[in-house]
């Protein structure tokens, strides 16, 4: 492949998490756990992000925000649900304002369990996401070449 490979950008959004998973995600990016050594960079800009880390369940108010963030990300994209709340709704599942896990709103590729998810588990999820992202990127280019350079939408 002629294209130059790049490191994926990481975007973090706090759904309705209790903060525990959020600060563990942040802790992953600081030198002790240093997720950046696996070739990802943290960004605050959804327009350039490739991997979305979402923590916490979905509620009535943040649902459009999450949807918008997901749509703003360029294709291909990978979504990682961090923590049990993002996976299923967790301890708050029965609350009146929780619609469920992140997959009720956007397609989720990788689920990281835990309450709060441990940094080791989050890094595991990130590594899986990077692999999946590279795979999807190649598929994306492949498809593009096959269709003579017309814009195609890759899965996810």
């Amino acid at each position: 492949m002629a294209n130059i490979k790049r490191s994926p950008w990481l975007l973090h959004y706090d759904g309705s998490s209790c903060n525990g998973c959020d600060i563990e995600v942040l802790a992953c990016l600081t030198p002790i756990y240093d997720a950046e050594r696996f070739g990802v960079m943290n960004t605050g800009d959804p327009m350039q992000a490739d991997i979305l880390l979402i923590t916490g369940g979905i509620n009535a108010q943040n649902q459009p925000t999450v949807k918008q963030l997901y749509e703003q990300m360029p294709r291909p994209k990978v979504v990682v649900a961090v923590g049990v709340c993002a996976c299923t709704g967790g301890v708050f599942k029965e609350c009146y304002n929780i619609l469920g896990g992140a997959d009720t709103t956007i397609p989720v590729d990788i689920y990281v369990p835990g309450c709060a998810a441990r940094p080791q588990a989050i890094i595991d999820g990130i590594v899986k996401a990077v692999d999946l992202f590279q795979k999807r990127l190649e598929e994306h280019y492949e498809k593009k070449r096959g269709q003579g350079g017309n814009e195609v939408s890759a899965n996810g």
């Binding site: 309705s16 209790c18 525990g20 998973c21 600060i23 509620n59 708050f92 609350c95 304002n97």
Partner: peptide
């Protein structure tokens, strides 16, 4: 309201011992 979960409503579903664990998950910090 982006993180409003309605945690206080769980009193109907969890007894006073179980509520400890819900209370702890108000905030992870």
């Amino acid at each position: 309201g982006f993180i409003h979960r309605g945690l206080e409503s769980l009193v109907d579903k969890r007894d006073f011992n179980q509520m400890t664990y819900v209370a702890e998950r108000t905030c992870g910090i």
